[in-house]
Amino acid sequence: MKSAATARMTAPGDVTSFSLGLALPLGLVFAIFFVLPLAQLLYLSLHNDTAATVWGLGQYIKFLTDPFSLAVLGSTLLLGAEVTLACLVLGYPIAWLYQRSGSRLQTLIIMIVLLPLLTSVVVRTFAWIVILGRQGIINSVLQSMGLIGTPLRMIYTQGGLIAALAQVQMPLMVLPLITAIGRIDPNLSDASASLGAGSWRTFFKVMLPLSMPGIIAGCTLTYAAAITAFITQSLVGGGQMLFMPMYLYQQASTLQNWPFAAAISIIFLFAVLAIVALFSMLGRRARGYGDAR
């Protein structure tokens, strides 16, 4: 009691040290089950042979000097950008609508947005196979309307994959947007209008900058989820579209080339970290906007 009382008197800042102590159990779990395996992955990737006996940077050199491997990395990062953009363009109006509607409609919207999260990714992905297939919903509707003669090939194409991923990851975009747009004072857009700005101008100059924190958060989540979505990528993308998750799975599981697979994951990890860092840098700048109100 005595020591606690003195501590409270002398150093009120000690509150933080208490919270660190409480974080110890979780920190320990992270250290054992996350940091340690990650270190092991790094260790494994620094070997030149499949049996992991010869040290060297061979695996990294192999990846970074191979145009094919770099193309796989590039197309994976591009896929993430396309999905994120699709989610943003389609998700923003939903979040906007949510803030402008009555409470009953709001419940409905939030239910529709959350609904995909309540079913497993595998089920959602299979639904897309049914929708995009040769005898799927889209093809049969277009055919019955006489717009197309032979069915379009949509499954196992980049376009089909983007559509499926965008739907599967949509909640990750919409939920942060709803929060961010909800924090914007509705009077601001009225003020902008009364000062003579048109609705587009109000949107680009007032609403968009103020919702930036939500956009950044949503984009980070969607991007990370889209590029690592192994199940959707392989089921809707098929076996000839190679992205990083499938590439490293192939190396590890079919070819038992663990060091190269480890190097691929480390490179992928750093590529993703770089993108996330870029997002959070943009986010910090955007927070400037947010505080400015």
Partner: peptide, 12 residues
Amino acid sequence: AAVAANPGALAT
């Protein structure tokens, strides 16, 4: 028409 990622996906 398709290069499936695994035999299971091919069957579907």
